[in-house]
Amino acid sequence: MNDRMLRAFVTCARTGSLTRTARELGYSPASISEQIRQLERLTHKSLFHRSHEGMMLTAAGEDMVRVASEILRLIDELKHRGPLEELRRRPEPVRVA
């Protein structure tokens, strides 16, 4: 499981469309579909009802989108924070033995 897979899933849950998701993330619809299928295989759950009208979350998908959204929020926070920011906040000097 990786953040690309989770982004494809969360974005598709929001847009309800493989095509719109692909356009938004800069991938092909086939790539987005494969990312979602891999996630479904890993979780052993069907996350979407697929129809010609679009993609709608299953009950398992509804549960998963909340968790996946929080994971992505944390990943984004870590990416923006930078590796030294925590050290910069410390009032005491850092000692190396």
Rank of each mutant, 00 (worst) to 15 (best):
H44S: 13
P29Y: 01
G61R: 08
A59E: 13
F9W: 10
A30W: 08
R50E: 06
I71H: 04
R23A: 12
I36K: 06
H44I: 01
V10D: 01
F9C: 10
L25G: 04
E77Q: 13
L39F: 09
Q35K: 10
T21G: 00
V65W: 00
K45A: 09
H52I: 10
V10K: 02
R66C: 05
L42C: 11
A60P: 02
I32G: 02
R41A: 06
S69D: 09
L42S: 13
D76V: 03
E77Y: 14
L25R: 07
V94H: 12
L87A: 14
D63I: 13
T58P: 06
A13N: 04
T21A: 01
E70I: 05
D76G: 15
T43V: 01
S46I: 07
L25P: 06
S33P: 05
K79N: 10
D63W: 10
Y27K: 01
E53F: 11
P29M: 07
I32C: 02
G82Y: 09
S31P: 00
H49T: 08
H49E: 13
L74R: 14
K79A: 14
L74S: 04
V96M: 10
T21W: 01
H49V: 11
E24N: 09
R50D: 00
R7W: 03
I75Q: 08
R90G: 03
G82A: 04
N2M: 01
C12T: 15
G82E: 01
T21C: 06
V65C: 02
L78T: 09
L18C: 03
R41V: 07
H49Q: 11
E77A: 15
L72E: 03
L87W: 13
S31W: 07
M64K: 05
I36G: 11
R66E: 08
R95Y: 14
D63G: 13
M1T: 14
L84D: 14
L84G: 13
L25Y: 03
L39A: 05
R50V: 11
E85D: 10
M55E: 14
V96D: 03
G61Q: 08
A30Y: 03
L84I: 11
M64Q: 06
R37S: 14
S69I: 02
V96E: 10
M1P: 12
R41T: 08
R81W: 12
D63S: 12
A13D: 01
G16V: 01
T21Q: 04
L18P: 00
